[in-house]
Design a protein around this nucleic acid. Structure first.
Lengths: 328, 328
DNA sequence: TTGTAAGCGTTATCAC
DNA sequence: GTGATAACGCTTACAA
């Protein structure tokens, strides 16, 4: 691989002159510029980004850390994130923890070694200090789901989320609403708010609510379907449910199979609004998150911080919308 | 940020001695080792990986380049790839082209700048020379879907894929089978083989086949559903279809809606076998790819090449399996 | 067992 | 306009 030194020698100039044309900095006469450009072509020269990075103390890489890209929500988010980063000349490193703290820890240890410029994080299972120190060392973090002192968060409006859901269940005359969400070692998760809000509003209306937690990693369509079958066969089963779209589809299919009328006897509200909420046999009533906007705002915020500016706001809430369907 | 120099000063030793304990290379007395380790703790020292990389000419990053992570097939693949890489101390850079050649070109230009150690590629839209040169410069590529002179490929057994599909359609007494796949500027795609094999076998049996191409990026569930509705309403509509699972689900739902009996009047075979093939109202007959094995073998192969060894085999074919369902 | 010094491929600061 | 030269933070001969 040709280096800048080779180019300089080949063109009969000094290294610094080559560097100047490389970076379009300082004066270079048209004549020598041409000579140098010719030499570069000749030698098939490509600047070594590794060396540049070392000098600049920047890698141009942003890490996105999530539990698992197989979740359609994260896949959509990652897709938009990458596009936003691409537009600004940055690259995306994908870091999945599989919901395991050791892996998150390993990744954050790695992040400290300077090889990434910033982190967009949907996880937050470690000691708070880890993130704070990281930021204090000058590496920005954007949280997607957690409020930490001094760390910007970009997230859907979870209060609105809960309110919209409540309205739907009330309209459906539900009396016994089930919420299913992921097991959480992360107590600070802001997504929890949507469940709290929904519960509070419903309880004010005298509607019973239950929150059930399942282990994300081991709870796919089949497990949801099985759970649905058990629940819906029991007397006094819930007459409403809110859960992520794959689970919602499993509940819908099980209800149909069991002859439980949807939405009359069982109203279903799906969360998120990726393509997975569109695959059901009747259209799914869904509360849709604006992943594209979340990505845009996250990347904007992290870019601001990389420029050394404080982000304008520490918490950015993105509105959610109700997509009406036939399940509620 | 403390550097190795600071640690050396703090511990009262030479830089090289610190480096020795850092890398566990050469002799260091227990006493000085302790002094140095203490200094590291004190200063909260973390070696700068950017500098190390520059010296080693390695970054520990493997790029995976695909069209879009929103496709469940790629999401599953990426998930497994990352785990395999993690186990070997490597990181994954996610590079999506959105099926656009300019973006693929940009990414491959970037890859040449030394910041990644190797590429796992599901795309292959550029001039063949681009990839070959890349490999000749000592950077390994593993292709996931394309045969190029001298570049290893890891892929499902597409002949078997086509054979299994053919068997299913024959068993179902189909007479007019439709295949739907992505528009392809990549003529070399090995996935094409499954469609060819299916067509050949069926035609030998006197069964009509049609191949329809759709634009991946702009063809989601809704578009499939619409297409299905149009097709299934026409006289002499196909009585069998093979397509990716999201599309297959759309066809199933449309058929049910229109009162077309599945599988009697319309047999459906879904491709791939991610969770998306499980979300249908009746179980989907699916040809399942072993993404986990594809990931494992790809990463093994690229590790071999990074070690300077030629990979054992240039083409690795991973068996597919039929998951029986109610749609065929 | 430890230290000195050269070098990895760049960029930036100076003189000239 | 151009060219030495000293960084950047680390590794690795080689010398002591």
């Amino acid at each position: 691989m040709a280096t800048i030194r080779d180019v300089a020698k080949h063109a009969g100039v000094a290294i610094s002159t080559v560097s100047r044309v490389l970076n379009d900095s300082g004066y270079v006469s048209e004549e020598t510029r041409e000579k140098i450009e010719y030499a570069m072509k000749e030698l098939n020269y490509v600047p070594n980004e590794l060396a540049r990075n070392m000098f600049r103390k920047k890698s141009g890489i942003i890490a996105m850390i999530i539990s698992d890209i197989k979740h359609t929500y994260f896949a959509a988010l990652a897709s938009y994130m990458e596009k936003e980063l691409q537009a600004r000349g940055y690259k995306l490193m994908l870091c999945s923890t599989d919901d395991k703290l050791e892996i998150e820890k390993e990744y954050f240890n790695f992040f400290r070694t300077n090889i990434i410029d910033g982190v967009i994080s949907a996880v937050c299972g470690l000691d708070e200090q880890v993130y704070i120190e990281f930021v204090e060392k000058g590496k920005p973090i954007i949280m997607l789901d957690h409020a930490l002192e001094g760390i910007p968060v970009v997230i859907s409006d979870n209060i609105q989320f809960g309110e919209i859901a409540a309205e739907v269940f009330i309209k459906n005359n539900c009396k016994n609403v089930l919420q299913i969400t992921a097991e959480n070692h992360e107590v600070l998760a802001l997504t929890e708010m949507r469940f709290d809000v929904l519960r509070e509003i419903l309880e004010d209306e005298g509607i019973k609510t239950t929150l059930r937690r399942v282990d994300w990693n081991n709870f796919g369509y089949d497990e949801y379907y099985q759970l649905a079958t058990e629940l819906l066969q029991a007397d006094g089963h819930p007459d409403g449910i809110m859960t992520a779209e794959v689970g919602a589809t499993a509940f819908l299919n099980a209800a149909i199979k069991l002859g439980v009328k949807v939405p009359e006897e069982f109203a279903i509200v799906a969360m998120d609004g990726t393509f997975a909420s569109k695959m059901s046999i009747i259209s799914m009533t869904t509360i849709v998150q604006d992943m594209s906007e979340i990505a845009r705002r996250s990347v904007e915020a992290i870019m601001q911080m990389l420029d050394g500016r404080k982000p304008e706001t520490l918490a950015t809430y993105i509105p959610v919308t109700l997509r009406e369907g036939e399940t509620a």
